[in-house]
């Protein structure tokens, strides 16, 4: 299980591509992907296009990322969730807290 990360060409986006299962087992890797990033005004894109399952600890991880982003005046975009995953995000009303596209 991995997370692949890349900075966009213009250096304004950090894209984090998540695996099929987004759960507690990704905890450390997910954190490692952003903790050392201290760029101001960065957009963190959590790409969920590959993700089929997400649990509540994944929601918790996203919230930690949000805290981190806010610290450096950045923002979060949740990108391309599947219908199942979108449903989980909606139950938690995450669209009220961040952008989901």
């Amino acid at each position: 299980m991995t997370i692949s990360c890349k900075i966009s060409g213009d250096g304004k986006k950090l894209v984090m591509l998540i695996d099929e299962r987004f759960d507690f087992s990704l905890h450390q890797k997910f954190r490692d992907a952003y903790t050392s990033v201290m760029t101001q005004d960065l957009t963190y894109v959590v790409d969920l296009s590959q993700t089929e399952y997400m649990d509540s600890s994944a929601l918790g991880m996203i919230l930690l990322l949000k805290d981190h982003a806010q610290l450096y005046a950045g923002k979060i975009i949740i990108s391309r969730p599947s219908d199942t995953v979108r449903k989980i995000l909606e139950i938690a009303q995450f669209q009220r807290l961040m952008t989901i596209e």
Binding site: G60, L63, D67
Partner: peptide, 9 residues
């Protein structure tokens, strides 16, 4: 009370 990644649905 709760750490950042814990919440209560």
């Amino acid at each position: 009370l709760l750490p950042g990644d814990l919440f209560f649905a």
